[in-house]
Design a protein around this nucleic acid. Structure first.
Length: 557
DNA sequence: GCCGTTTTCGGCCCGACTGTTTTCAGTCG
């Protein structure tokens, strides 16, 4: 059992308990334990063997024994029993926006719907609006919500799939008979949503690789196994495909499996030729008279023309970042202490980290009132004394309120080093109002960065209605920084918008928005997104040194 | 169900918006 599988089981238990209207604090306890386990540094199996499960925050006696049972038996009686008490289709319905467990329960009891399909059917037959508390708007939003989910259902976020892909890749690379291996396809190009994990392998002994791969514990099922190719499902039903080549065919094989289709079609309008004898992708591109095109750019977005003209940008890399301008600590809804965040940031070779906890009106997220923000400032001052190679910047993620005003007074914001302004409420304003609201924040002289501009959540929630052209124009005029929020569920702004912004001279910050010290590393996804947006080091503000960034933020006020 | 140097029991989870109502339950961040 992996950390993720156990975390997911505990989360499912919480979902079921919610239907059963259990004590909300008990439900929260399961969620908290799940979250802790998801973020663990160590393999939970290892903690179990050392009898250290009790050290995990949020894991007490009861949950500890459940984890032990999961590890020992591979299953949990309590969970199995809960599963029989609630039709499984009801849990799937929880993903529909605007529909919670109470509504679902009512629909189940009144209409007998047990799956999304049945619910969609009932909504289309206008049977939902007849129920107490339901109306045509709810019915319509259920239809919209289900249709949105169906659109998404074939893909998973890169953040969910990439760690599984990397783990499988390192298993394969560790096999004696494998000389080279790489991820390929959309996962290698870094698309925010991917369908499957493609791995290209070089080996002289296909049979040996095939039989050893059968021992990889995260493979749940092999559906196809033919010469040169193995296909199946990993845990959580993530499809994988392993493509096997002899070492001589590996490089062209990898090149062709990376794609995209459109990119390859641009290179070879009449279909790819037989590619043999190439030892590097650089050589393949050179043979076509092109500079090397990094995988993230292989989307037929002008990269072939740029490569021919020698105009490809030198893309930003993770190690170009010198700091992070958006993260949360235990002072608001983060899970880590300031000192822990500082140590992780230093491990990542950062020289600064802006602490930007939530502002006062975001109560559920522990938004800081003025006094608490001042008290946090004192702790930051104390900690900053302890390092000479690193410092915290004092900041906030201030809420942009409904009317476009900010959640703190100007006098307070003036004193902070970094002000990230973000929308967390009122997602359904009309396009004009929402646009004006954000432009008002952009124009505010105390705001440095607009956080997660469009508010999209991949596979969960579309962006809110905005006139992005108008917003980019305003951002360029006000010299505001736009954030690439690196959280793999957000990747907001997306690559396309980042490229547009860059072309307009707008600076970008690649931020983690970490709520746990380990999530500082999520900038990895933001960097992939920035590369897909053709961004160079000089386009991204937090590649600057501490001194330069402080000067920039000051001059911009 | 978890947690604790103000507590081993009693806290923990607030406030706004939405769609339905005409005073409020449900959802969400």
């Amino acid at each position: 059992m992996t950390n993720r599988e156990i975390a997911r089981t505990l989360d499912h238990i919480a979902d079921i308990l919610e239907f059963q209207e259990e004590n909300p604090f008990k439900i929260k306890a399961y969620r908290q334990a799940a979250n802790s386990i998801y973020h663990l540094d160590e393999d939970i199996q290892y903690l179990y063997e050392k009898d250290r499960l009790g050290e995990i925050p949020g894991v007490g006696k009861a949950i500890k024994s459940k984890i032990e049972e999961l590890i020992e038996k591979g299953s949990l009686e309590y969970y199995e029993r809960l599963l029989t008490e609630v039709p499984p289709g009801l849990l799937d319905m929880l993903a529909i926006p605007g529909v919670g467990h109470k509504t679902i329960k009512m629909l189940y009891e009144q209409l007998g719907v047990t799956t999304r399909d049945e619910l969609l059917q009932a909504a289309k037959e206008r049977r939902i609006r007849l129920l107490p508390g339901m109306g045509s708007k709810t019915e319509f939003s259920i239809i919209k919500g289900i249709e949105m989910l169906e659109q998404y259902s074939q893909k998973n976020t890169l953040g969910f799939v990439l760690p599984m892909g990397q783990k499988m890749l390192s298993f394969i690379k560790g096999l004696d008979q494998v000389s080279e291996a790489s991820l390929a396809g959309s996962i290698r190009r870094g698309r925010p949503l991917v369908t499957d994990i493609d791995i290209v392998v070089a080996t002289d002994d296909e049979a040996a690789v095939r039989s050893k791969l059968a021992n990889y514990r995260e493979i749940k099922q092999v559906t196809e196994s033919q010469p040169g190719h193995i296909q199946g499902f990993l845990q959580f039903n993530i499809p994988f495909e392993v493509i096997l080549h002899t070492p001589g065919e590996y490089c062209p094989g990898l090149f062709l499996a990376t794609g995209s289709k459109q990119h390859l079609a641009r290179l070879f309008p009449s279909g790819p030729p037989r590619l043999e004898g190439w030892n590097s992708e650089t050589d393949i591109y050179a043979s076509l008279g092109l500079d090397y095109i990094p995988p993230e750019l292989r989307e037929d977005q002008g990269e072939v023309e740029a490569a021919a003209a020698g105009h490809l940008p030198t893309l930003i890399q993770r190690q170009d970042l010198q700091g992070d301008l958006h993260c949360h600590s235990g002072w608001s809804d983060g899970a880590s202490k300031l000192a822990e965040l500082g140590e992780m940031a230093r491990d990542m070779q950062y020289s600064y980290l802006a602490i930007t906890d939530h502002s006062r009106s975001l109560a559920i997220s522990g938004g800081l009132n003025e006094e608490r923000l001042a008290a946090q400032g004192e702790e930051i001052d104390r900690l900053n004394q302890t390092w000479d190679d690193f410092m915290f910047l004092k900041g906030t993620e201030v809420d942009i309120l409904r009317d476009g005003s900010l959640d703190y007074d100007a006098e307070l914001l003036e004193q902070l080093d970094v002000v990230v302004a973000s929308v967390h409420t009122n997602f359904h304003l009309d396009r004009k109002k929402q646009t004006e609201r954000i432009i008002q924040a952009i124009k505010d002289e105390n705001v440095d960065i607009i956080g997660h501009l469009t508010g999209r959540l991949l596979n969960r929630r579309p962006a809110y209605e905005l006139d992005l052209e108008e917003i980019l124009a305003a951002a360029a005029r006000s010299k505001i920084i736009l954030e690439i929020n690196s959280h793999p569920d957000r990747l907001d702004i997306d690559a396309e918008l980042a490229r547009q912004a860059r072309d307009m001279g707008i600076k970008i910050a690649v931020n983690s928005d970490a709520h746990h010290k380990n999530d500082l590393r999520l900038v990895h996804y933001g960097i992939i997104n920035a590369r897909r947006g053709w961004l160079r080091k000089e386009d991204v503000i937090n590649t600057e040194s501490r001194e330069a960034i402080m000067a920039y933020l000051k001059n911009n006020e």
